[in-house]
Design a protein around this nucleic acid. Structure first.
Lengths: 206, 206
DNA sequence: GATGAATGAACGAATGTTCGTTCATGATTT
DNA sequence: AAATCATGAACGAACATTCGTTCATTCATC
C-alpha cells in the first residue's frame, strides 16, 4: 500500500509535487492566498519548509499553478458538449453540469481568490482569461449549432449569448454560496428557466 | 480655506476619520486588504501609525467599515427606482445605472475583495448580504409592479426574476473588467437585451 | 560516490499592535 | 479675564510575531 516502495525516484517526486499542490489548494481555499503561509502549506503537506522550496520556486509559483488548475475540470465539461448531437439537450446538460460545478463552495471560494489575484497579477489574469474564453468558445459553438438547426431562434450572436449564459450561471452560483436563503436546487431551476428565456427556447413541457 | 480653524474639535476628528477611511479605501482597492499594511494606510492618510489606532480599533474594523460602504451608493439607485411611475422605464434606467456602477474598475476590484473577505468573516458577510438583499427587494418590487400593470408577462416570481437580473448585471460587469476583449458599451447593449429577453419584454423598436 | 530529495535552523524584512509621551484645545475654577 | 485642569488627538519608537526565503547539512537512492 505504501506509495514509496517500487516507484522510480522521478515518479515519486512527481507524486510529492502533486501532494504538495493539493495541500496548498486546501490551505488556499480555507484561508485565502495571502493568509496562508509557506509554513502552513509545508505542514499540511507533511513536508519540511526547506523541501517545499525544492519543489516550488516560491509562493507565487504555487498560486499561479493553482490558478491554472481549473482548466482540467473544464476540459471534461467541454467534452460532454462536443459529443452530444442534439444541441438543446447538450445545452441543458451543460448548464446543469457547469452550474453544479460552480455551485460547490470550494469552487466559489477559490474562484473569488483567483479573481482577486488576477486583478493585480497579470500571469494569473492570463490563466483566468484563458480558462474562461475556452469555455465561452465551446458554448458559443453549441449555440451556433442550435441556431442553425432551428431549435433555437438566432436572435443573438452566438458569442454574445454564450457570454450571457455563463454570466447567469456564475452569478447564480456566487449568490447561492455567498448569500443565505437560497437553496441549491432552487438555483438550478431558476437558472435553467432563465437560460431558456434568454435564448428564446420554447419550454419542453408546460 | 483651511478646514482646521473654526470647526469644533468633535467635527474635526470626524473629518479625520473619514479622511483615513478614504485613504484606506484607496489602499485596499489598489493592493487588496491583506497586502495593505496599517503603515500603508497611515502614510496614505498623512497620519501617524499610533494615531490611526486612536480612530480605528484595528485592521478588521477598517475592513468592516469599508465593506459596509457600498450601501450609500445603492441608496441613490433605489431612490430612482421608487420614483419612476412607468415600471418598464424604471427598469431600463435601473439596469443602465446599476450596470454603470458595477462596471467601474474600482467597484469590481473592491467587490471581489469584499466577497473574498465575506467567505471567512461573518460580519463582512452580513454587510454583503444586507446590501444585496436590499437591492433585490427593491428591484423585485418594480418587477411585480410591471407584471401587475401588464407591461411584462408575469411568468416569473418577481423575487426570482430580480435575482436573475442582478446576476446578469454583476456577472457581465465582472467579465468586462476582468477579461480582455469586451468593451463597456457592448456590455451595456448585451445586458439590456438579455434582461428584456429574460423578462419577456417586447422590444421597444425593431 | 554522485545526484538530488529532505531537513530545520537562520536571516532580514515586515507585520499588527501597544506603549509612554507630547501637546493643543475646551471646560472649570479662581 | 487669568489660571488651572482634564481630555483625547497625535506621535513614533518599541514589541513580539510572523513572513518568504536561503543555506549548510544529512540522508536515500541510483
Amino acid at each position: 500500500m505504501s506509495t514509496k516502495q517500487k516507484l522510480p525516484r522521478s515518479d515519486k517526486t512527481e507524486l510529492r509535487r502533486l501532494h504538495i499542490l493539493d495541500a496548498a489548494l486546501t490551505c488556499f481555499t480555507q484561508h485565502g492566498f495571502h493568509q496562508t503561509s509557506m509554513r502552513d502549506i509545508a505542514t499540511a503537506a507533511g513536508v519540511s519548509l526547506g523541501n517545499l522550496y525544492n519543489h516550488f520556486s516560491g509562493k507565487e509559483a504555487l498560486i499561479i499553478e493553482i490558478a491554472a488548475l481549473e482548466a482540467a475540470e473544464l476540459q471534461l465539461l467541454i467534452e460532454g458538449l462536443r459529443t452530444e448531437p442534439d444541441a438543446i439537450a447538450a445545452l441543458d446538460v451543460f448548464v446543469r453540469r457547469y452550474l453544479a460545478n460552480c455551485m460547490q463552495q470550494e469552487t466559489v471560494v477559490l474562484t473569488i481568490e483567483v479573481m482577486a489575484e488576477a486583478v493585480r497579477n497579470p500571469r494569473v489574469a492570463q490563466h483566468f482569461a484563458d480558462n474562461r474564453r475556452y469555455l465561452a468558445v465551446a458554448l458559443a459553438h453549441v449555440l451556433q449549432h442550435a441556431a442553425d438547426t432551428g431549435s433555437a431562434p438566432g436572435v443573438w450572436q452566438a458569442a454574445e449569448a454564450a457570454e450571457a449564459v455563463l454570466d447567469i450561471i456564475e452569478g447564480a452560483a456566487f449568490r447561492t454560496v455567498l448569500l443565505p436563503g437560497t437553496t441549491a436546487p432552487a438555483t438550478v431551476e431558476t437558472v435553467l428557466r432563465a437560460v431558456q428565456a434568454l435564448l428564446g427556447v420554447r419550454r419542453q413541457h408546460a
